[in-house]
Design a protein around this nucleic acid. Structure first.
Ligand SMILES: [Mn+2]
Ligand SMILES: [Mn+2]
Ligand SMILES: [Zn+2]
Ligand SMILES: [Zn+2]
Lengths: 146, 146
DNA sequence: GTGTTTATTTATAATCATTACAATTTTAAA
DNA sequence: TTTAAAATTGTAATGATTATAAATAAACAC
């Protein structure tokens, strides 16, 4: 956990930003809830539990900054809010998601799986791929057993 | 164009809805701008040119209805608005997009390309795929030549 | 056809996420 | 210390979307 925090601290420093107490509190919440897909409001409420003096605007600005630095990915599952997803250290492509249309659960896929598709896109459409967003909508294994 | 309108009319009727003049005007705007990715506001402004008496709420409700019926897909490219994309007749999966991070252009890919990936998802994760969203972010061929 | 219910639309107000702003505090530099 | 830059705070403003109530239009029953 601290290794990851240090790594993020370095990423901030590299771009000329400091890890302020508020930013640290925000990053810690993200690290402690890595499997979730928290909205800005979610993060704000969790940060406030340990640092009640933090402002909502700061959380928004921190998440925006982390998004710019590619520490997190901002994603939208179609409900009205943006959600923030920590990137695994070293990953240069965003991971994929399986959204269940029955129970709403969100499962993650670490494997890239898109090498072939990207090759086609680069070849046929002459499009230089930098990143991607892939979400499948369907029925999760638990809901299938009902 | 009229064939497509009739087809959509049928889809509405099948689900117990009528093609009111307002809905027809909205669908026509979508058909006339098939290559674009219009926001609700965009659609509203275009509809108003020919039917000035239409209300914004009606456009929103119509787009919502068409989304439920899978006549259109609601998509979010990360700017603050939802955009609406007509499905090609008979397509049961949403098409893909190439978003240029330099000029902002959005290119469409009709080919599915995901058969193999979906097979893996269904097999390995026991997830029954119903639909997908795939967007590549990168540099379009025009911007590469600069 | 007349009266009655239901669906739809309209204009507008309310909501809610996000962003902008001005004042204040913290940190770094001189 | 004095000064300047960076960051934060609380709150106001914005802007997209949704909810509401009154008005219209369409479908239905007699
Ligand atoms: Mn995720
Ligand atoms: Mn499209
Ligand atoms: Zn499920
Ligand atoms: Zn471009």
């Amino acid at each position: 956990m601290d290794t990851k925090l240090d790594y993020i601290k370095k990423q901030l420093h590299t771009s000329g930003y400091k890890l302020t107490p508020q930013r640290e509190a925000t990053v810690k919440v993200l690290l402690e809830n890595e499997q979730d897909h928290l909205s800005a409001e979610d993060v704000y409420l969790l940060v406030k539990e340990k640092s009640p003096e933090i402002g909502l605007a700061t959380v928004y600005r921190t998440l925006e900054l982390l998004t710019e630095l590619k520490v997190v990915d901002k994603i939208n599952f179609g409900d009205g809010v943006s959600r923030y997803d920590l990137r695994k250290e070293g990953d240069n492509h965003f991971h994929h998601h399986l959204v269940c249309i029955q129970c709403g659960s969100v499962q993650e896929i670490e494997e890239d799986l898109l090498d072939d598709v990207e090759a086609i896109v680069e070849d046929k459409f002459k499009f230089k791929v930098k990143d991607h967003r892939l979400t499948f909508h369907g029925v999760c294994n638990i809901c299938q057993d009902k």
